[in-house]
Design a protein around this nucleic acid. Structure first.
Lengths: 335, 335
DNA sequence: CTGAAAGCGCTTACAG
DNA sequence: CTGAAAGCGCTTACAG
């Protein structure tokens, strides 16, 4: 490992000067700059970012905490965060919590002692209490795709108007003539979607029965199970609103394997518009979320907060991304 | 930020002693140990891992370089690597290269100057030349899910017998009576699969025509395009072997949207056995790869290499994971 | 068992 | 414009 001292020696200068030519923070005479540069090239010197991190108190890495990356929604988002960070010469420390609070707390704590420059935590992947504790460190923290109703904290946030997502989906179903509409949701993560769903029903004078809300955990399998349960209800639904596409896809699978058809017997709407939604059988009607834009916005906000020394500018930023309805073939007028 | 010096002062000892109680490397009298521990608790001290990293020359983080995480195969693998690392108190620095060599080189270089404790690069996500350059640093590097034929280097590797995957898939098709079998592959990444495919054909005395090998890039879309091209051939195939499930799924989609049926008109086999394979329409026959086992084995190997100071034990390890055929409904006897 | 000291590889005022 | 020096927060022989 060649160090800055080696370069300095070879160039006949002191390490401070080498540092200056590398960072460009202080002007160095073009003559010595050339000499130093040559020494760097000859030796193949690469600054040690760990040492720099210690000296500057900055590591050029951001912590990314997500529930999982096996959900395509998150894998796309993570990829976009990484890309944006990369463009700014930042690295990503990835952590998945699978929505288990203890894991979230553990991850955040370990990340904290690594001097991350900033934290981005998505979709309630960790307990807000633990997130706030990390925020105490003084490092910027941004929330992303975080359910508004659980926002409880004055943290910067970039997210989606999930309430409106729930409303749009439900309204669409109502307009098609459905009256018995069941929701499959992961709670509390998808609380706002629930609120939007309820709002739409209420606005149309439709009743909200206790058995119209089924729980899932955002996986395909849980959508399958919940839909199966819905079909077994005394008064089965004619439409299902699923909190995300994976559960919607699982619901379709359950319905089809029960010998029923989508949208012939039941209509299904999801949320996210993951790639597979368009290729499903039938292609899934869903609420599209501009994932990549959201990811980019959140990352850029975090990077900006990291740059700005000014603590006051870290006040609450709320960027709301509007979702929209994409009608495909999984929904139809009630028979 | 409370430092080790703060703790030392409060406990009335020197920072060396605090360090000793934390690391437990040197025995400390139980009396002072208790005093130090109390000071740690009172102050809520957390060791700064950046500083420790500099002092010890170890960062407890491993670099993970993958082509993409939007392919479910890799998202599962990445998740398992992270989980295994986490269990050993290691963090993951995630990098995606999208198979663009320049990006791979760039990522590896940046990772190198961060003093990663080890590198894991998957599925030819970076150029082997660049990988070898990183290996020069003396840090352990393990290859994973790397195509054997491109293994050119004496690096430790945990991967799949992809040649046998290609062979199993093709044999299955041949046994069903298919004679015109086209392969959709990403090259050179899936070279071994190609070799297995050719081997099976040759063993059965079937000809290998130049137009029987179509290129893809492992995405759904590329599978769709390649299958569309295959259908337009003068002598269209009755079966398709796709290098991975995503391309196989894309191929099915293309065939169905051309008014043909799977497996009625064409049989399709993929490789990977991603979750969606089982839920596809029709459920996809594929070559199952024990992804998570592979990921765990690779991570544990890397961790072991990091632990072992002994350079000699870093000789080539090759762990081959055997794939197996999973017959579902996308393949049938030739009409 | 504990302390004094040097070192990890950089950066950053501060002199000159 | 360049150098000498201290510092970032730990760890690690080495004395005592």
């Amino acid at each position: 490992m060649v160090t800055i001292a080696d370069v300095a020696e070879r160039a006949g200068v002191t390490s401070a000067t080498v540092s200056n030519v590398i960072t460009g923070r202080v002007t160095v005479s073009s003559k010595t700059r050339a000499r130093v540069q040559k020494a760097i090239d000859d030796l193949g010197y690469r600054p040690n970012l760990v040492a720099r991190g210690l000296a500057r108190g900055k590591t050029y890495t951001i912590a990314l905490v997500v529930p999982t990356i096996t959900n395509p929604f998150f894998s796309e988002v993570v990829e976009e965060v990484e890309r944006t960070a990369d463009r700014n010469d930042f690295q990503i420390m990835l952590n998945t919590t699978h929505n288990v609070p203890a894991q979230g707390k553990r991850n955040l704590e370990r990340l904290a002692s690594r001097w991350m420059d900033g934290f981005m935590v998505m979709s309630m992947a960790a307990d807000i209490t633990d997130v706030l504790e990390v925020a105490q460190l003084g490092k910027p923290v941004v929330l992303c795709a975080w359910d508004q109703d659980a926002r409880s904290a004055a943290l910067p946030i970039v997210d989606i108007d999930f309430r409106s997502a729930g409303e749009l989906a439900t309204q669409h179903l109502i307009e098609l003539g459905h009256q018995r509409i069941v929701a499959i949701l992961e709670l509390p993560v998808q609380q706002s979607r629930l609120a939007g769903y309820q709002q739409a029903l209420t606005a149309s004078g439709l009743p909200i029965t206790p058995d119209s809300i089924l729980r899932g955990d955002s996986t395909f399998e849980s959508g399958y199970r919940a839909a199966t349960a819905a079909l077994a209800q005394p008064q089965p639904p004619t439409a299902i609103f699923a909190g995300n596409d994976l559960m919607a896809l699982g619901a379709i699978e359950a319905i089809v394997s029960h010998g029923l058809s989508v949208p012939g017997d039941l209509s299904i709407v999801g949320v996210d518009d993951i790639t597979q939604a368009a290729y499903a059988h039938p292609p899934l009607t869903t609420i599209s979320i501009p994932k990549r834009e959201m990811a980019r916005a959140a990352t850029e906000l975090l990077l900006r907060l990291i740059e700005s020394k000014d603590e006051s500018s870290r006040a609450t930023h709320v960027t709301l991304v509007r979702p929209h309805l994409v009608v495909r073939a999984s929904t139809a007028a009630r028979a």
